[in-house]
Nucleic acid binder design. Structure first.
Length: 99
DNA sequence: AGTCGAGCGCGCA
DNA sequence: TGCGCGCTCGACT
């Protein structure tokens, strides 16, 4: 569970209005298991303290949320935080990227 | 551009 | 032990 814990720990630190990618997280953990990052977030039981909606794909696609791909809920949440989203893709991704 | 297959770490059967 | 997953990237079409 170390892996998952680390992932959750990092995601938890993402400030409001900012996002990061699965890839960056994996890199931070010194691994190439990008999928494992998604898995960890998917299995996370505390969406309250773990804003998994702030984690997106490297190309800006929102990915998924709560086990559902392209979750409209996730998109709306991000938009609410001031992030522009066009057709399930984040615009100016670089502008919101952290880490 | 769009699609396919291969690699990673963890969880579940 | 084996397979799949909220992913990514290099190769092919």
């Amino acid at each position: 569970m170390d892996f998952s814990e680390k992932v959750l720990g990092l995601v938890k630190k993402i400030p409001k209005g900012k996002v990061t990618t699965y890839k960056k997280i994996a890199k931070k953990l010194n691994t190439n298991a990008y999928r494992a990052v998604g898995s960890a977030l998917r299995c996370n039981d505390k969406p309250i303290i773990i804003p998994c909606h702030r984690v997106v794909n490297s190309d800006g696609a929102v990915g998924g949320y709560k086990g559902v791909k392209n979750s409209k809920e996730k998109i709306r949440l991000l938009k609410k935080e001031g992030i522009k989203i066009k057709s399930s893709k984040i615009e100016n991704l670089k502008n919101h990227l952290v880490m």
